[in-house]
Design a protein around this nucleic acid. Structure first.
Lengths: 193, 193
DNA sequence: CGATTCTTTGAAAACAGTCAATCTGTGTGG
DNA sequence: CCACACAGATTGACTGTTTTCAAAGAATCG
């Protein structure tokens, strides 16, 4: 169950057996079936969540009821609604499993204790957050500068594992285009070859 | 010169006079004339930069030589290229002053020392980074879900101070649309009233 | 197999980009 | 003070891209 996480954390930061044990002790595991929801908008997100296996997505409904995929998460990624978590207010986003998945969860207080007591974990998480910000900056640049086609290719190249796990209409929603447009982009590619 | 920063920091976090003094001692001030560059792509960004006054932008050139505004910064904001800073590699981005501006700078090593020695500063900066991430998440959602017109209105409403300081063609580039399209969006508004 | 979901396609309409020209406001030098 | 240059903003005409809506094909799953 948590072997994947153990391996991940050992490779990600220098952490003692003892600290690793406290981290595991404070966690709970959860299995999600396909389409199971982990967060409904309106609820407050109070967890830190590591994905051991499977695939999840973070998405949001607009005023017309259309959903927009803000982020995907697969094994060894973390997922959550930072805004709701940090500000302790109702989430605007939803999280659902796109496939049978298993996650590891910590409560906010438990996690804060861990961060306080395990500097290596805090350092690691700070670096992780920094990288997440860099990634979102890159995504913004891509959205304002590149064509739908370029964004599609970039996504496929950068996140091949994700690409292979999620339905195309969600890729479209992640790229900010309609499924039909994505379909036509793909068509042009097969034709061009 | 640094009064603005002093006021800002006192209001942002609980910090002792002594700590504030060390922060100021480690800093250097710099005045920028209009259009002066603070970072050229290819260089490595090695500073933490606080904007005391004026207006700057972070932008990037695409392969066709068009520039895209990734972010603006005005007084009491921080600006920099996180990716270049964290990974200590050549920047893909540029930073320039859009008006006569003054900034306060810290070297990376000086800043890291400060963070290590002043927990209140570290906490504050962590919160700031968290908020920056939330903001970029919001921007991504806006880019994938909203029309150009909606994004324009949202920008104007959310950052009125920035809106009033920057030329429209840069707003367009920030929104991911051409200046002509922005011009037509604005035209429709004056007509509708 | 039938039901459901996902993807593709076609045609029309809406939207956004490009290019070139014009307009507006600002500031400079004669 | 005027004429001019310049940068920024707007407009028109045209082109290209994306959305929308409706329908039809795949693929998947019980």
């Amino acid at each position: 169950m948590s072997e994947a996480f153990e391996k991940y954390l050992r490779e990600s930061c220098k952490i003692s057996d003892e600290d690793l044990q406290s981290i595991l002790d404070a966690s709970t595991s959860k299995n999600l079936r396909k389409w199971q929801s982990l967060l409904h908008d309106g609820e407050t997100w109070k967890s830190i969540c590591f994905i051991s296996s499977g695939c999840l997505r973070l998405y949001r409904f607009d005023d017309d009821g259309n959903d927009h995929t803000v982020r995907f998460g697969i094994e060894n990624w973390w997922i959550g609604d930072q805004e709701s978590y940090n500000q302790e207010k109702p989430a605007k986003y939803n999280i659902e499993a796109l496939a049978q998945s298993s996650v590891i969860l910590w409560t906010k207080t438990a996690w804060e204790d861990l961060l306080k007591n395990i500097p290596a974990l805090k350092d690691f998480f700070d670096r992780l957050s920094a990288r997440a910000f860099e990634t979102s900056q890159q995504r913004i640049y891509s959205l304002i500068s590149a064509s739908a086609e370029q964004r599609y290719l970039e996504f496929q190249k950068t996140y091949p594992k994700v690409f292979n796990k999620v339905p195309l209409h969600m890729v479209a929603s992640y790229l900010g285009i309609s499924r039909e447009t994505l379909s036509r982009i793909r068509k042009d590619f097969t034709k061009a070859k």
